[in-house]
Design a protein around this nucleic acid. Structure first.
Lengths: 124, 124
DNA sequence: TTCCTCATACTAATTAGTTAGTACTAAAAG
DNA sequence: CTTTTAGTACTAACTAATTAGTATGAGGAA
């Protein structure tokens, strides 16, 4: 059985979210964005992005002086993987308990649920 | 703002699942259970369970020679916390996108969705 | 040209998570 | 009573994740 691609860690996800948002970004772009939230070193961001490239989540091209990074695959794919991984860990792989949990937790009405179903169908 | 209780790591969750299942368990009980799946040292399990006690997920009482551990709070509470934490990390705190994702991913029909809603209502 | 800025590569320190060894003690077995 | 067994406490090794420092080079500014 092939070992599956390592899933995103906390900090890696932080960076991926930014790159998904910007669609393409240099280390500096990401660095500046994170700086608004918290203190971090430029080289830290660089290291992380290189790791993400190694894991196959980002791809880079040379652009002027600096590398330009882009997501290697669409956000939806990655999110799908993370959700699946979470369901495996916490709910032993079956999605239904999570759904039940969420519906109960949110106290959704029939109407809201139908609305979600509609959006989901569109998403498909 | 009070710092929230540290969330369960991978291995900690593995142990908690066993204790929830058994309802109360000694280190040995958990050790034997894990052994069925993989090789592990007795003291490793002990260390982990002590950590879980420190984090407030387990509480122990002296029982004969060994400690008897029990869950400090019901499984549902902890699961709720983990789901919330996941939603924060991945979906910036809003549950709806996760719901939409799940419904779309599972390709649920009206009927199945209604069924889930029914179970959820009972759960409440 | 010379200097400053900003980029990368390489290296490494620190912290968190996981795993397990060793010393010691009390109870059970012989 | 002595030996074996099964438990805990304390310590530590190892791996993974996170963070950042230093060296170096290319390009633009003076």
């Amino acid at each position: 059985m092939r070992k599956r691609k390592p899933i995103l860690t906390e900090q890696e996800l932080e960076i991926m979210k930014i790159v998904w948002e910007l669609e393409r970004a240099t280390v500096r772009d990401v660095y500046e964005t994170i700086l608004k939230q918290r203190r971090i070193a430029y080289t830290t961001v660089m290291t992380m992005m290189k790791i993400l490239e190694g894991k196959g989540y980002l791809k880079k091209t040379q652009e002027d002086r600096a590398y330009l990074y882009r997501p290697a695959e669409p956000k939806q794919n990655v999110i799908r993987g993370m959700v699946a991984e979470f369901i495996n860990r916490v709910f032993n792989g079956s999605a239904e308990p999570l759904l039940v949990h969420l519906v109960a937790e949110e106290g959704l009405t029939e109407k809201e649920l139908a609305e979600i179903a509609k959006i989901a169908r569109r998403e498909k």
